[in-house]
Measured scan of single mutants.
Amino acid sequence: TTVKVNGTKYKFDTPEEAQKFAKKAADKYNLKVVVDGDDLRVE
């Protein structure tokens, strides 16, 4: 599972880890998590 934040992709072994990271990033930058198929985007 990958998470894309500000054009940078981060790869995670499990969707749970990816979800946690995406949520933290979204909170930090005051953005929202967008599900894109198997991957997540923070925008």
Rank of each mutant, 00 (worst) to 15 (best):
T1S: 07
T1E: 02
T1I: 12
T2N: 06
T2F: 12
T2I: 12
T2H: 07
T2V: 12
V3F: 01
V3N: 01
V3S: 01
V3Y: 00
K4W: 15
V5H: 05
V5I: 15
N6A: 08
N6L: 14
N6E: 05
G7Y: 05
T8F: 14
T8A: 11
T8Y: 14
K9F: 13
K9P: 09
K9R: 13
Y10K: 01
Y10V: 03
Y10W: 08
Y10R: 02
Y10G: 00
K11N: 09
K11A: 08
K11P: 02
K11F: 14
F12W: 01
F12N: 00
F12C: 09
F12T: 00
D13P: 10
D13E: 11
D13V: 08
D13H: 09
T14F: 04
T14A: 04
T14N: 09
P15T: 08
P15V: 12
P15E: 07
P15M: 13
P15G: 04
E16T: 07
E16V: 07
E16I: 08
E16K: 06
E16R: 07
E17Y: 02
E17T: 04
E17C: 07
E17K: 07
E17S: 06
A18Y: 01
A18D: 00
A18E: 00
Q19Y: 15
K20N: 11
K20Y: 12
K20D: 12
F21R: 00
F21Q: 01
F21N: 00
F21H: 01
A22K: 01
A22S: 02
A22P: 00
A22I: 04
A22N: 00
A22M: 03
A22Q: 01
A22R: 02
K23E: 09
K23H: 09
K23I: 08
K23W: 09
K24V: 10
K24L: 14
K24N: 12
A25L: 15
A25V: 15
A26V: 03
A26F: 03
A26W: 03
A26C: 09
A26R: 04
D27H: 10
D27K: 13
D27P: 02
D27A: 13
D27R: 12
D27V: 10
D27T: 09
K28F: 14
K28A: 11
K28S: 07
K28N: 07
Y29M: 10
Y29T: 04
Y29E: 05
N30F: 08
N30E: 06
L31N: 04
L31C: 11
L31P: 02
L31M: 14
L31F: 08
L31I: 06
L31E: 04
K32V: 14
K32T: 13
K32Y: 10
K32I: 14
V33R: 00
V33M: 05
V33F: 05
V34Y: 12
V34Q: 07
V34L: 08
V34R: 07
V34G: 04
V35A: 10
V35E: 09
D36R: 05
D36Y: 07
D36F: 07
D36Q: 06
G37Y: 04
G37M: 05
G37T: 04
G37E: 05
D38P: 11
D38H: 10
D38F: 11
D38Y: 10
D38C: 09
D39K: 05
D39H: 10
D39W: 09
L40S: 02
L40Q: 02
R41G: 04
R41P: 03
R41V: 15
R41H: 06
R41A: 09
V42E: 03
V42T: 03
V42C: 07
V42R: 02
V42Q: 02
V42D: 03
E43V: 13
E43P: 03
E43K: 06
